[in-house]
């Protein structure tokens, strides 16, 4: 391995890293909003919307992100919806992640025992209080592990964005290998930057998971 080559490529990778991170976080944020909205629709059994949400979840959970991106980026413009590669990446990641986040949050909400709600009613809490003080804290605690797993999964999925010509880490690596054949250095930097991206998330995640566990009941 050649140190000079590594130093020369570092800025290129840094730029790609920031782009990947930007799409990743925007996409995850979007997926979180979609997830919260859809989980509420499912939990409160809102008619019609509930059917749409269910269809959306099944569609996006059962197709690969790469195919979704190709459809959004190359297919939709033919119907007149033009979106840039960047917003396409964010939208694709958000839609895919949204379907996973919905499942995580919904199962968290449903994991709260009916007994808890009955007890709260017996203590004469109103519906809003029950939701805000009884259901929500416990639901967040129990859906935290799957949410964190989803965040890591979504950050890993960003690696397919090079297919819609976003200059992300994969794209940079492939491009540089093709141009200069410094395969070892390129692949080494690729691995290092992905670890740099995922390690903090994983560590922060497990701290957060411990923090919210206090909301668990009876253990």
């Amino acid at each position: 391995m050649d140190i000079n080559v590594l130093l020369e490529y570092l800025p290129l990778y840094g730029e790609a890293f920031l782009l990947t991170l930007r799409i990743g976080w925007l996409g995850i944020l979007l997926s979180f909003f979609i997830g919260v909205a859809c989980a509420f629709i499912l939990y409160f059994r809102i008619p019609i919307l509930r059917t749409i949400v269910k269809a959306y979840i099944e569609l996006f959970r059962n197709t690969p992100l790469l195919v979704q991106l190709f459809f959004l980026y190359f297919g939709l413009p033919k119907l007149g919806f033009h979106i840039s590669a960047l917003s396409c990446g964010v939208l694709g990641l958000g839609l895919l992640g949204g379907s996973y986040m919905t499942e995580a949050l919904r199962s968290g909400l449903e994991a709260v025992e009916p007994m808890q709600i009955q007890s709260a009613l017996a203590l004469s809490m109103n519906k809003r209080q029950i939701f805000a003080h009884i259901i929500l804290p416990q639901a967040i605690a129990s859906s935290m592990p799957p949410i964190l797993a989803n965040v890591i999964f979504l950050l890993k999925e960003t690696s397919v964005f090079s297919a819609i010509s976003l200059m992300d880490l994969m794209f940079t690596a492939k491009d540089l290998i093709g141009l200069y054949y410094k395969t070892t250095e390129c692949l080494f930097l690729l691995v290092v930057f992905y670890i740099l991206m995922l390690l903090p998330v994983s560590v922060l995640g497990s701290i957060l998971e411990k923090k919210v566990r206090y909301a668990g009941f009876g253990e």
Binding site: K156, S159, M170, L187, Y194, I195
Partner: peptide
């Protein structure tokens, strides 16, 4: 930690 895409490369 490694995306499947990276492993593939």
């Amino acid at each position: 930690f490694m995306p499947q895409m990276v492993l593939l490369f």
